[in-house]
Amino acid sequence: MSDALGLTVRVDKDWLSGVEIAPGQVVLCENVRFNVGEKANDETLAKTMAGLCDVFVMDAFGTAHRAQASTEGVTRFAPIACAGPLLSNELDALGKALDAPAKPVVAIVGGSKVSTKLTVLDALSKQVDQLIVGGGIANTFIAAAGYPIGKSLVEMDLIDEANRLTDKARATDGDIPVPTDVVCGKEFSAQAQAETKSVADVADDDMIFDIGPDTAKQFSDMLKSAGTIVWNGPVGVFEFDQFGAGTQALAHAIAESSAFSIAGGGDTVAAIEKYGVADQISYISTGGGAFLEFLEGKSLPAVAALEARADG
């Protein structure tokens, strides 16, 4: 970091007891993780941090969903608290996609389980025009639509929930489209044989690992004509190339679309890197958990604290 900045960056380990510094200098206060009270958002710790500065700059979106001493606490007590450029850029981009989006809005929510994304699905199902589900989440919707899913990863206890979400989306002129064709394998492995079939023809010993080419085409067309795209989660097991065509097709469709597109989450960023489309996504979120909570419509504690300090 010293080299990149062209000056010496001093590392202080005992910085809570005071930092000696002059304008033009940079001091790295070593790892807040080791401060007692950081995770518990201890007020005394937050006030100590606030006392070190004239201006506190919150520039870490990826931590904004956690109320901790170095995020939310210090924001409340610093003489002045503001957002740094990285954080404000991120909030502007995400706000553009969700608060006042260009229509139609298409969201992709992939991942293994409905249960972990239920709040996101619930929030998006009433906001977006098309909600594309992928991975294990899609399997539950496929089963809810009455199709066989063989040995696929599925949450049978959430079938009613899936139907409720679909009904809710349709009630506001949206939809959660179910794939018409899928790519199956007999085992979860890099060597598994891929077989494309109609969603109605999935066998008892099949596992669904990707959307099929017809579905990929249908979803790609939706993405290409979208005004706004929100992407969280792959639609197949793209780590194995024979089950990656669906995610690849959607990645390229997003890249080619003129829509304002935002993407986030570890698997999604990995897929974006794998298919080389990073430069063609409008904004890639730096936060995993914080990105999901933003999509869920939750208030991020550190951002709420900044907003409370907008006037002083």
């Binding site: 930092v19 510094i21 304008p23 206060c29 941090m49 070190l52 500065c53 004239d54 201006v55 506190f56 700059v57 919150m58 520039d59 870490a60 979106f61 990826g62 931590t63 170095s70 995020t71 210090v74 610093a78 002045i80 608290a81 503001c82 957002a83 740094g84 450029p85 990285l86 404000s88 909030l91 502007d92 706000g95 570890g266 698997d267 960023v269 990995a270 890197e273 730096t286 936060g287 995993g288 958990g289 951002v303 900044l306 907003e307 300090r309 907008a310």
Partner: peptide
Amino acid sequence: KKFKRMQDLDLQGKRVLIRQDLNVPMAD
């Protein structure tokens, strides 16, 4: 969103504490 932005503030001679995100939460 309505909040102060660092770009808009006068920081001349000020002690500025920046919370950064240098962690690596991404599994891959």
